[in-house]
Every structure is written in C-alpha cells, then in structure tokens.
Design a protein around this nucleic acid. Sequence first.
DNA 1: TCCTTATATGCGGATAAACGAATATATATT
DNA 2: AATATATATTCGTTTATCCGCATATAAGGA
Lengths: 111, 111
Amino acid sequence: MDVKSLELEVNLLHERVCSALSDTTRIMILYLLAERDMFVNEIADELDAPQSTISRHLKVLRERNLVSTERQGTAVLYSIVDRRIIQSLDLMRAILNDQIRADAEITRTRS
Amino acid sequence: MDVKSLELEVNLLHERVCSALSDTTRIMILYLLAERDMFVNEIADELDAPQSTISRHLKVLRERNLVSTERQGTAVLYSIVDRRIIQSLDLMRAILNDQIRADAEITRTRS
DNA sequence: TCCTTATATGCGGATAAACGAATATATATT
DNA sequence: AATATATATTCGTTTATCCGCATATAAGGA
C-alpha cells in the first residue's frame, strides 16, 4: 500500500475511531459499557461527572458508531456496538503494563 | 475491578498510549516504522511535512516509549518498540472497514 | 394540558495541541 | 577551529477540545 492510500485510510481511522479514544472519560464510558448496557445518568453517577459532560461524550461515541442507543420511556440505554474496540484498548493496556513492569525491573536491578 | 482502580489505570492508558494516537501524522509515522526503521528526514520526505513537525511528533512517541532511537553519525534511526501498537491500530481499522461495509450495504439495499 | 424525569445541546470561557519558521545542538569532516 | 549535515527545540500564533451552566427537547404520568 502506497503512502497516499495509507494516508487516506489513516485520516478516516483517526477521525472516526482514534479521536474517540483521546479522552479519559470516553475510555471509561467504553469500559463501563463493556460490563453492561447503561443509561446516561447511571454512567454519570458511576463516573461522578455532570450529566451534560457525559451526554456530550456519548454523542462523540455515537457519531462514530462506537455505541448504539435504545430509548426506554424517557431514558436512553447505551451499549457497545463492536467489542473489538475493547480488545484494542486492552492491547494498549498490555503494552502499558509491560512498560511499567520493565521500568520497575530497571529500578530494581539498579542497586 | 472497581471504578476507582479502573480510573487510575485508564488515566495512565490515556496519558501514555492513547494520546499518542490522537494525531494523524503520528499514526502515519507508526505505520511507516512498522515497515522499516527510518531516519527523521526519511519520514519527513515520505509524509511531505516539515522536519520540525516530524521531530516534534517523534518526541511525543519517544516520550511514551512507543518508538526507540539509535544514533548513526549525525542521523537518528527510529524504530517501533512494541508492535502490538500496530495490532491495536489494525483492530480499529477492521472496525472502521466493517462500519464502511455496513453503510455501503444499507445504501445498496435502500432502493 | 401541566408537571416530572431523562437526555441533549447552545453558549462562553479555559486549556491544550498543532503548526512552520527560525534557531540551537550534536556529530562528522576537513 | 571551521564547515556541513541531521535532528531537536524555542517561539508566537492558530485551531481544536473540554468544561459546566443553563436551557431545550422528548416521553410518560397526573
């Protein structure tokens, strides 16, 4: 794949997926929804954040098709669309944990 | 895992990994380095970007231990540290491609 | 219809991130 | 020491993003 084609695809990747992960609260929302479907105010309670903040983050995730909604009366239930986004985050967590382990090892053996 | 512990880990995850992926140019750099180790000005040439821009992005990746360096004379060779970052990006690309395919299918069958 | 609950959004302000030009630093060569 | 090459950093500016308050919208119940 040449650089120009890759650039087109990476632009989309960034716009539609990666940019959604560039905020701690949005990552937290994804992990909460990985456990179970939740209503907006349930998420806001769990994360101890204003409802408007959570709604705004949910909008970002919704626009990118990372979460879907189902209205139930006056409430809206959110859920994960594609669990591979969690796999992807977990891979990064694994990288991070290995980094931390390696750092600790360096500190330990430097005596 | 309780929400507080998860929050601590997710903060680190965001700071040290995800935030590195929140820019198209940095993602491009990672994909270029996935192909082969490269010098700064090789990357700048490939991406048709000013050298200062590339250096600054490389600094972000370096600070997060996602790339490593080896000086060769006056030049510095950059390489990927942990290829799982590419796996993680590829997973997101797969999600994106399935989204696009699904959108196309909806458009096709709406006749 | 009026009120309540749940969610979404408009707004202004604050913060952070990106940019390229210019300059500084580091290494190698003469 | 002087010069050349490669990379890193400083600077001021621009652009994007996040925040919470206040308000708007949507659905259900009295």
